[in-house]
């Protein structure tokens, strides 16, 4: 399961870039918010198809929806806030700083969440994260130089 999760995590990155590139091309014509609307429509239809063919549809009636804290249902809302904020900030800051700052925010809050959910504050994660940040910065600088 460990190695599958590693592979799946990398595939997450692949899917993010594919969706982001396609979305940017769509938004050029119909705008970001209309594009996002269609994203959620097609996404919801696909999710329903998945659920229909999965075992989960059989257990649907046994699910205890009230056992889940209410905040856990708000991920979709947070996702839309991320889209609105990104749309607001993109013209005001260089892509270089935007990418780096988003990653820094993700990494440090991620480490804090891991501390509370997995119960470990690992120096390795902080140090490793800084190395990842260094590699990201280096490659973004190469892009930046070319764009000028």
């Amino acid at each position: 399961m460990f190695y599958i999760a590693i592979l799946v995590s990398v595939m997450t990155g692949v899917s993010i870039v594919l969706a982001r590139t396609i979305n940017a091309n769509l938004a050029k014509t119909i705008g970001l918010f209309s594009g996002t609307f269609f994203n959620f429509i097609t996404g919801l239809l696909t999710s329903l198809i998945f659920i229909f063919f999965s075992k989960e549809s059989l257990n649907m009636t046994n699910l205890d929806f009230s056992s889940v804290p209410i905040w856990a249902y708000l991920g979709g809302l947070v996702g839309v806030i991320v889209i609105v904020l990104s749309n607001h900030i993109t013209p005001k800051i260089s892509a270089f700083y935007l990418t780096l700052l988003i990653f820094i925010g993700q990494l440090f809050v991620g480490i804090i969440i891991d501390y509370f959910t997995l119960g470990e504050l690992s120096i390795g994660k902080i140090f490793g994260g800084i190395l990842v940040l260094f590699g990201l910065t280096y490659n973004l600088l190469l892009d930046k130089k070319k764009a000028v």
Binding site: I4, A5, V109, I113, D114
Partner: peptide, 18 residues
């Protein structure tokens, strides 16, 4: 399986290569 921060770093690798 892995929490938040490790998948984030692995996802970044996937993003960079893609």
């Amino acid at each position: 399986v892995l929490g938040v921060s490790i998948p984030l770093a692995l996802g970044l690798l996937g993003q960079s290569v893609t």
